[in-house]
Simulated scan of single mutants.
Amino acid sequence: MVLCVHINAFPGDERSVAAVGRFIREHATAKALILDARTHRGGGPREMNVLLSYLFEQEALLAYLDTPRRNLELECGPPGDVLMREGHGPEGIHRREHRVHPHTTESRLFGARVFYLVSSRTASAAEHLALALQRTERATLVGETTAGANHFACPQPLGDSLAVVLPVGRTLDPDTGKDWEGVGITPDILVPADQALEEVLQRLR
């Protein structure tokens, strides 16, 4: 069975997180999983962590999230999650390590083939997931180079019901120390975004 899941965002609320886990458990017999993030505009790490726990057989480092320590005074650190623990960053930098921990009772998807569809609209947390899947070689990325929206941000009130969204840090590849701001992530298989799904289905036939 081939399972195709279209994802538009990771809102991070309890209902969405629970729905991801329930859906994956109910379809854990799939031999191939297609994650369609071509219109995914971002969000947080919670749904991502639930999804990844069903795909990795062993714990793995996925990415670093760095922010200047002075930004912590603004209560604007990296996206919070129990699976992001403090690491050792450069001087003056608060670093968190994003790691995946395998699910303890459901392992049927550990060996499934995984494809991740991307486009020039795939942004932010969806690019974070693209990096995680690509650098660990857990999925094949198919489509167009992503949007290049790396730097994470948080709102700061200005008064009079106004606020500014302030960039406070970046997500980076632990292997290269680079991020994808402004350049995006290049997929393993470059095809026009509207042909990405058919490309994968052809490869699965």
Rank of each mutant, 00 (worst) to 15 (best):
R41K: 14
H101L: 15
R46E: 12
H128N: 09
L172F: 08
P155Q: 03
F110Y: 12
R46Q: 14
H103V: 05
V183G: 13
L109G: 01
A130Q: 07
L201M: 13
E127K: 06
A123Y: 04
F23P: 02
N8Q: 07
T146P: 02
L52W: 03
E26A: 15
T186C: 13
A125T: 01
R69M: 13
V114Y: 04
I189Q: 10
L190G: 12
E106K: 01
D160Y: 00
Q134V: 15
S161K: 10
V50N: 02
L131C: 12
A153P: 00
I34V: 05
G80C: 05
P174G: 05
A123I: 03
A37L: 14
L166V: 14
D173C: 14
G77C: 08
D175I: 15
F23E: 09
G159A: 10
H94P: 05
V183P: 06
L158P: 00
M1A: 12
N8R: 09
V17S: 00
A112C: 14
L166K: 12
L72D: 01
A18K: 07
G87L: 08
L131I: 14
A193Y: 05
R170G: 08
P155D: 14
L83C: 01
H151I: 09
R69N: 11
L131F: 10
G148Q: 09
L129G: 02
G80A: 14
R95L: 00
